[in-house]
């Protein structure tokens, strides 16, 4: 009898969550390549922040798997708009451009200039400060599932409204990070809490967090405009196509092509302060 009841229930639940998911072949449109500027000048709390890297690449068709897209031979420089100090990034011939004498100034204004293929790209951004991570701990409660381990950080939000955060968590050994963004719109002035939990997978229990797993969590202070950019980017990354998600759209960063506006670049020039913590699950 109990089995029958279970069957009926499962059937009913099944109705609600009956959906099935499979991989299909789809023809997608193909746009011509654009320059991608990943200019993230991130200054870790308690360091000098002299070493910085900017990555340049090009976009490809959506299903392209050989990603040989490094951009070589571009001119990359960053100017501190307050001091007029110029930092010339050196082409490493692998798509990265580096400096080792960058001087970060909290709330300082910086301009990025990239010259590539005869076109000039410009972007301006302020270095957004952050209070730092208060503590990191693991827990079972909280999170989506009370049987799964999750990792939490807390940090203080300053009293004025309008602070924005990006939190990037990556488990050692994982190919991809998990990125979350937060605004203090609903939680202004409070101690903020953020948790990460991985879904359980009956077939592969190593998927979820287990004792001994090591994670790295970075907390960035970001500008409101970057918050809008990265939030939408992550939202579309997570749920493109979901009928309950917003219609996906082109996400425009802050790098403007001053030579040919239509040939704008993907990516963003961000300047942030960040704090990070490593944690090993007990």
């Amino acid at each position: 009898m109990k089995n029958n009841i279970k069957l009926a229930t499962i059937l009913a639940i099944f109705i609600t969550f009956i959906s099935c998911d499979d991989k299909i072949d789809v023809e997608v449109p193909e746009a011509s390549p654009r320059l991608v500027i990943e200019a993230s000048l991130d200054w870790e709390k308690g360091t000098l922040g002299n070493d910085q890297t900017i990555k340049l690449s090009t976009s490809t068709s959506f299903f392209e798997n050989t990603l040989n897209t490094s951009v070589i031979g571009a001119m990359v420089k960053v100017t501190n708009n307050d001091t007029n100090a110029v930092f010339n990034f050196v082409d490493q011939n692998d798509g990265t451009y580096t400096v080792n004498n960058f001087v970060p100034v909290l709330n300082g204004s910086y301009t990025l200039e990239v010259v590539y293929d005869g076109e000039v790209y410009l972007a301006t951004e302020n270095l957004t400060p952050i209070t730092g991570i208060n503590e990191v701990f693991q827990s079972l409660e909280g999170g989506f599932d009370e049987e799964l381990l999750d990792v939490n950080i807390t940090y203080n939000d300053p009293a004025p409204l309008g602070n924005f955060y990006m939190i990037r968590m990556q488990e050692v050994g994982d190919l991809f990070p998990i990125i979350e963004t937060r605004s203090d719109e609903f939680t202004n002035g409070n101690v903020q809490e953020e948790f990460f939990e991985k879904e359980d997978d009956d077939e592969d229990p190593t998927e979820q967090f287990n004792p001994g797993d090591e994670v790295n969590i970075k907390l960035y202070g970001i500008s409101e405009r970057y918050y809008n950019f990265i939030t939408l980017l992550i939202e579309q990354y997570d749920s493109a196509g979901n009928p309950f998600a917003t219609t996906p759209a082109e996400i425009r960063g802050n790098c403007i092509n001053t030579t040919n506006a239509a040939n704008y670049a993907f990516g963003y020039f961000r300047v942030t302060e960040f704090d990070q913590v490593d944690y090993i699950f007990q």
């Binding site: 449109p29 976009s59 959506f62 990070p177 990354y237 996906p248």
Partner: peptide, 20 residues
């Protein structure tokens, strides 16, 4: 709206979109 390309950002493959 289907993607018309991809690019690498923050270590992720980000889809680009055109017309709605």
């Amino acid at each position: 709206t289907y993607p018309d390309g991809q690019y690498q950002y923050e270590g992720l493959s980000i889809a680009s979109f055109d017309a709605r």
